[in-house]
């Protein structure tokens, strides 16, 4: 169901905006934004593009903050396939929410006169979750810039946070994850034990017949990762995933020269269980990718704001390349 959320002054005492902006035209997409600003941005996007964008309630975080996603959909009587994109599952990876906002901005500013985007919008709906781990994101702004996990308490309140990208029901906590809450990869108390994970998983389950592409945006490392992380076995469409991913990496490189590697997480990065990417593929979403954005280790999670624009520009090229292939496979015949 659809909800409208109007942020109230003082609602988040610890999360006031650093800068004042009144209209979308003044919004800086080359800056990092607090959660309050992102809430306001989502609301304004929905108000500005009433014919294309609706804001929907997804669930509540552990600390009782509402999670919203944006649905970008061009009115049409044709049946359409859908794309899911989430950002900010790991709190400290600030470039990810910046990219989700950039992506929405680019789509909405260009779909009317850019034939490529127009074609995609004619046949595909987009679900965009700009910040998945809202509690953690706010904590990374207020207290610990390098916080990664959610903020749920464990061990009688002596230990906080689950790694939401180890909490999905995909060979949960079998490899590359920890059952110790002190660890960065704490997988939670059970598969889907965290409210944020449950909210995302419930929605994707309900929409899985229509969703053909799942994209989750992370940093850093310059990777386009495909399933799996929990096994060295390959998904049935592995060759296709590699081909589409490599084409995306080529498009990305053509923009600013950044070299991304493409492969399964277990092959080119490390093994990990319980990731959303692996879970999405296991429930039948054919194209499932993790982007590890631009930095090569120079800045790590603390990517300077001067890097936001080139990062988003090149990532946009890669995402559009994947969407072109999704369109060709699922929409062209219609």
């Amino acid at each position: 169901y659809e909800m409208r959320f109007v942020p109230q002054d003082g609602q988040e005492d610890v999360d006031k905006p650093l800068s004042s902006w009144r209209t979308l035209e003044n919004y800086s997409y080359d800056k990092y934004h607090s959660m309050t600003e992102i809430y306001q941005w989502m609301y304004q996007i929905g108000e500005r593009y009433t014919d294309m964008v609706t804001q929907h309630f997804l669930g509540m975080t552990y600390e009782s903050r509402p999670m919203y996603y944006l649905k970008i959909s061009q009115p049409s009587s044709n049946p359409k396939k859908s794309i899911w994109m989430d950002c900010g599952i790991h709190a400290r990876e600030w470039i990810a929410p910046a990219f989700c906002q950039w992506f929405v901005k680019e789509i909405l500013q260009n779909y009317q006169h850019d034939s490529r985007m127009s074609r995609l919008l004619n046949s595909l709906d987009f679900y965009v979750l700009p910040v998945l781990n809202i509690d953690g994101y706010i904590y990374s702004w207020t207290t610990d810039r390098l916080w990664r996990k959610s903020r749920s308490p464990h061990d009688n309140g002596t230990c906080f946070g689950s790694d939401l990208n180890r909490n999905f029901n995909a060979s949960w906590c079998s490899i590359g994850a920890s059952k110790n809450c002190q660890d960065l990869t704490f997988c939670g108390t059970g598969p889907m034990s965290e409210p944020e994970t449950k909210a995302v998983a419930s929605f994707l389950e309900s929409q899985k017949e229509n969703i053909v592409c799942f994209l989750t945006i992370h940093s850093y490392g310059q990777y386009i990762l495909l399933p799996y992380g929990y096994t060295s076995n390959k998904p049935s469409n592995y060759e296709e995933l590699i081909q589409v991913g490599q084409k995306a990496a080529n498009a990305l490189k053509a923009k600013h020269g950044t070299n991304y590697r493409v492969g399964s997480s277990a092959d080119i990065l490390y093994s990990s269980s319980g990731s959303s990417r692996d879970w999405a593929r296991d429930i039948g979403i054919p194209f499932s990718y993790t982007f590890e954005l631009r930095d090569n280790g120079t800045y790590g999670f603390v990517l300077p704001e001067t890097q936001i624009q080139p990062t988003c520009e090149e990532t946009m090229e890669a995402v559009l390349s994947i969407l072109d292939d999704v369109y060709t496979k699922y929409c062209l015949s219609n």
């Binding site: 610990d144 990664r148 960065l184």
Partner: peptide, 22 residues
């Protein structure tokens, strides 16, 4: 400011070799 970023962990992070947990 309530939103002031905590700088100490940033400095500590820079001492950790790549790759970290992504």
């Amino acid at each position: 400011s309530a939103e002031k970023v905590a700088f100490l962990p940033v400095l500590l992070f820079l001492l950790v070799p790549f790759p970290a947990l992504l």
